[in-house]
């Protein structure tokens, strides 16, 4: 009996305090009756080994007590789909806001590699904190609903207010497979890419093509483009040539309908080169004075303002491209992972 007492004491520790006595009294009566019957059948008390085996068969005290608990989950099945959606949205927005806040922090001062590393290392903690708060809030709602302190609004019911007429229109993208690019679109991409390249090559000799009549006004200003523009320009030309060749290659090979996530990421990354060139330019000055001998006295302050504005704009553009690049990489990695899991199944 001593072992049974110990077992019941262990069970008691895990029971809801309001019903401990009642449950233990009932459990004791049932188990003692069972034990007496066993001993009557054997004609002797159970040996310590037999007693241990019998108690083991009853299950661990924690498991026994767990069955008496009214609620065995943190977030129930009716709330869970909403919780999952809210968690996904909260994590996505937290990541975006965190990236923007970090980028803004870097722009406010000269960014160092250690700042970037610190921000990256802190990101999981930020996301974990957001996830914890969302989970905590939903667990609290679940408890409130379970104890009838709160009633979920009708739209939380799985089928409330649902109408087939409100279903979104069918699209192949939504159906799982992205809509393949048509032949006409692929040809147009190559043709427009070619004309775009021609236009780009003509601009240095004929700036009118880019600025229109404004070119005469720009010529009258005391400012000029810094030499870094030449390097950036040829980078841009090279990028467009690469893009055009790639599109033409896909067209001639008949593979324009096949998506190439890796190529997409590579082109987007290369697209950062001109921006990075400007950001790393000497003195961070994409605009210079035409006449360094006479003009500095009159225009130095204004020039500094213009270059600061230009650099700030370039840093913002760079941050936006980096963020979208990161999002694209995550999205494509997830797609690839899902395809691999689906293939494995």
């Amino acid at each position: 009996m001593e072992r049974l007492d110990r077992y019941l004491l262990a069970v008691r520790k895990h029971l809801p305090w309001q019903r401990q006595d009642d449950i233990i009294a009932e459990l004791r009566a049932n188990l003692e009756a069972q034990l007496e019957e066993k001993e009557a059948a054997l004609g002797r008390p159970l040996s310590p080994a037999e007693m241990q085996e019998w108690l083991k068969a009853l299950g661990s005290p924690l498991r026994m007590a767990a069955h008496y608990q009214p609620q065995q989950y943190l977030i129930g099945p009716s709330l869970y789909p909403i919780f999952r959606n809210v968690l996904r949205i909260a994590l996505s927005w937290s990541a975006v806001i965190y990236c923007i806040a970090s980028a803004a922090g870097w722009l406010a001062k000269s960014p160092h590699a250690i700042d970037v590393l610190r921000a990256l290392l802190q990101a999981p903690l930020v996301l974990f904190t957001v996830a914890a708060w969302v989970t905590f809030a939903f667990a609290a709602i679940e408890i409130a609903v379970t104890h009838q302190f709160l009633k979920l609004p009708d739209f939380c019911a799985p089928s409330a207010g649902w109408s087939p007429a409100e279903l979104p229109p069918f699209s192949q993208e939504a159906a799982g497979g992205k809509k393949p690019k048509s032949f006409a679109a692929a040809v147009a991409e190559v043709i427009f890419g070619f004309f775009w390249l021609v236009w780009l090559l003509l601009v240095p000799a004929h700036p009118f093509l880019m600025f229109g009549p404004g070119v005469y006004y720009l010529r009258s200003l005391p400012y000029a483009l810094a030499p870094i523009w030449v390097t950036a320009y040829w980078c841009l030309v090279a990028l467009n040539i690469l893009q055009l060749l790639w599109n033409a290659y896909k067209l001639t090979r008949g593979t324009w309908q096949i998506r190439h996530p890796f190529a997409f990421i590579v082109f987007k990354t290369i697209g950062l080169t001109p921006v990075v060139l400007f950001l790393t330019a000497t003195h961070h000055a994409p605009i210079v004075l035409k006449d360094w001998v006479q003009d500095p006295a009159a225009y130095a302050a204004r020039l500094q303002e213009i270059n600061q504005m230009a650099n700030l704009s370039l840093e913002i553009v760079c941050a936006i491209i980096l963020i979208t690049l990161g999002v694209d990489i995550v999205r494509l990695s997830l797609d690839a992972y899902r395809k691999r899991v689906a293939a494995a199944q």
């Binding site: 009932e26 009566a29 049932n30 188990l31 009756a33 009853l58 299950g59 498991r63 069955h67």
Partner: peptide, 22 residues
């Protein structure tokens, strides 16, 4: 009561653990 119910169910071929029945 609990134990006799458990025995009756077991006699009918429906054995149930104590931790489930009670």
């Amino acid at each position: 009561y609990g134990y006799t119910l458990r025995k009756a169910l077991a006699d009918d071929g429906l054995a149930i653990d104590e931790s489930t029945l009670y």
